[in-house]
């Protein structure tokens, strides 16, 4: 189209080229041609908003079109805002809001449902059956939780490490509850890629992950291998000396 020059003040959708296209578009409709041009085609299957805007273009009368007043952006209509412009923008905006609001439930449904959330309530674990040197695995929110009854030797090994030399520096005291040094409670999921480490394995008598060789010590701290951080400690409290509540 020969006479399609960019219009000063028109807010374009993207590259400068599109401006010309839009202009052509309006002109062609103004002339009663059935064909549309580039931008309309590209966006035709897109959002309602876009379509509504192009819908707008169809009604631009010739006179207005020659001055480029039919263009639907605020900038273009600044000098002569018309009722038509307002209508098209309002329709497009309302449709866009509707489309956005429709997406919400469609995405929200993928979050855990109410029964899953309810099943993730805190659990209580009785520690009496766990002998010194033993550990058990319980499940909370679908995750294995290791509860280790550590021996003196293990506790000392965990405490007598230079914390600053660790990949993820953390003293043992920050990983157990005060006065309950013998109980280590950690989420048994390797912080590398989610495998389950084996207890009482590896060079530090802690945990060893068979997938990619991460080694954790008796405090569940990462010592060797690709895992970036220590085994996380889940939220838990001692209800009594022999009972904890996880969660």
């Amino acid at each position: 189209m020969h006479a399609c020059e960019p219009i000063a003040g028109l807010r374009s959708y993207g590259k400068g080229a599109n401006r010309t296209i839009l202009d052509c578009l309006f002109r062609r409709i103004g002339e009663g041609k059935s064909g549309f041009s580039a931008a309309a085609g590209a966006a035709g299957a897109g959002s309602l908003f876009r379509i509504a805007l192009f819908g707008a273009s169809g009604a631009v009368p010739l006179a207005a079109d020659k001055k480029g007043l039919g263009i639907v952006t605020t900038a273009s209509s600044a000098d002569h805002p018309t009722r038509r412009d307002f209508l098209y923008v309002a329709t497009g905006a309302v449709a866009a809001v509707g489309a956005a609001a429709t997406v919400w439930p469609l995405v929200s449904q993928m979050n855990p449902d109410a029964s899953t959330i309810a099943a993730g309530a805190p659990i209580e674990v009785d520690l009496t059956p766990i002998a010194e040197g033993q550990d058990i695995k319980v499940f909370w929110r679908g995750k294995p939780i290791y509860i280790s009854h550590r021996t003196k030797k293990q506790i000392e090994a965990a405490q007598n490490v230079q914390v600053s030399s660790l990949p993820d520096p953390q003293p043992d005291s920050a990983r157990v509850k005060a006065g309950h040094d013998q109980w280590l409670v950690v989420v048994g999921i390797c912080t590398h890629l989610g495998c389950i480490p084996i207890a009482h394995e590896g060079a530090y008598d802690g945990f060893f992950c068979p997938c990619h060789g991460s080694v954790y010590d008796t405090s569940g701290r990462i010592r060797q291998g690709p895992a970036p951080t220590n085994l996380p400690v889940p939220p838990y409290t001692f209800v009594s000396d022999t009972k904890i509540q996880i969660g």
Partner: peptide
Amino acid sequence: FLILLTVLLYFTKKKVWANA
């Protein structure tokens, strides 16, 4: 929402078809 949208679309449609 739908009533608002329908009313707006009705007038938009009228405008678009005005010259057809």
